[in-house]
């Protein structure tokens, strides 16, 4: 933990992304600049179709920008080869998806231990850590259950545990509460918040869920592929009354 306070774990520099739909060009991102410091809980807010998921994929190294650069820990991820990229996805970043994306044929525990297997952790160690993580998200009794035997909220908890498997520096969440009801969504948000506080994980969450605002250190408002404004926590509490009206 050295010069971390000034250290940007993620830096997005003038990123654009254009999709080709037949003859039609859709510009999903129109020049995004963003710096995210270690341990922050950052929410990317914006209406549906504003480019949140596209940005999420760029930061997560799941897709390549058309122009511009994405740096993780000051390393340009476009420069990484297939092995380094896989290593980055395995060890540095934990992903959480709107649709949970658990592997249906595996039990909760196997889902959590899979990233550790990829990381070369022994079976015994990964099982032990998997059980600990499931306990952390309150599912220790359900480790033998398949995703189909779990509720949406429980599946998302397993996904959170899986995202933590290799102690990533960053957790990326795309609409983590999008498929959950109000209370379950709130539980997941609180879980993420606790993690960011206790484990110093940087959490980046794309969402249009207003509940996310309360826990965010920073909110990036994105509209039509551009950053509208970036608000810190203290500014937020002032404008929070007007947000409800806006959405």
């Amino acid at each position: 933990m050295n010069q971390n306070s000034s250290h940007n774990i993620v830096r997005v520099s003038d990123v654009t992304k254009t999709f080709q739909l037949g003859k039609l060009e859709v510009q999903a991102l129109k020049g995004i600049d963003l710096e995210i410091s270690v341990g922050n809980y950052l929410s990317i807010m914006g209406p549906s179709g504003s480019g949140k998921s596209t940005l999420f994929n760029m930061i997560g190294g799941l897709d390549k920008p058309t122009t511009g650069r994405v740096f993780i820990d000051e390393v340009d991820i476009a420069q990484l080869d297939a092995f380094e990229l896989a290593w980055l996805r395995c060890r540095k970043i934990g992903y959480i998806f709107q649709t949970f994306n658990l592997i249906q044929v595996m039990t909760a525990l196997e889902n959590v231990t899979l990233p550790m297997t990829f990381a070369g952790v022994s079976a015994d160690d990964s099982t032990q850590k998997g059980l600990e993580l499931l306990k952390l998200v309150g599912l220790q009794d359900r480790h033998q259950h398949k995703p189909s035997e779990l509720s949406g909220g429980q599946q998302q908890r397993v996904a959170v545990a899986r995202a933590l498997a290799n102690d990533p520096a960053i957790i990326l969440a795309d609409e983590p509460t999008g498929n959950l009801d109000l209370t379950t969504g709130e539980e997941i948000i609180n879980l993420l918040k606790t993690l960011s506080r206790e484990r110093q994980v940087t959490i980046i969450s794309a969402t249009h869920d207003i509940k996310m605002l309360n826990v965010s250190d920073q909110v990036v408002w994105i509209r039509d592929g551009r950053i509208d404004k970036i608000e810190d926590r203290d500014e937020l509490s002032i404008s929070i009354g007007t947000i409800d009206l806006k959405e």
């Binding site: 050295n2 270690v38 092995f83 380094e84 896989a86 980055l88 070369g120 520096a169």
Partner: peptide
């Protein structure tokens, strides 16, 4: 989170392989 969490090529690159035992 010190230098070892850096991604730049280094002698440790060998340890950075992801694996799937047979």
């Amino acid at each position: 989170m010190t230098a070892d969490s850096r991604l730049s090529p280094s002698p440790e690159t060998v340890n950075r392989l992801v694996v799937l035992p047979f």
